[in-house]
């Protein structure tokens, strides 16, 4: 840990605020990416179960 002198609070809080904001952004991005991917997989699986024959035709097309 470097000696931050009398401005330690400012420097550390600036880093804390920025890094937590970035973490929040990355977190929400990953979370939404995962949930959308999961939902998409579910719907696609359901679709494949329901009418495999008809679906195969559309996939080939």
């Amino acid at each position: 840990m470097p000696d931050l002198g009398k401005y330690a609070v400012e420097v550390l809080s600036a880093y804390a605020v920025s890094l937590s904001l970035l973490a929040l952004l990355i977190g929400t991005t990953l979370h939404r990416s995962r949930s959308v991917r999961r939902a998409l997989k579910q719907v696609e699986a359901r679709r494949d179960d329901q009418k495999p024959a008809a679906d195969k035709a559309t996939k080939d097309a």
Partner: peptide, 20 residues
């Protein structure tokens, strides 16, 4: 990185909406 990831998510979300 983030914009690629989020764009992928958006594309998936749109496909999801279309399928639904």
């Amino acid at each position: 990185t983030l914009v690629l990831l989020r764009t992928r998510t958006e594309i998936r979300a749109r496909r999801l909406a279309a399928l639904k």
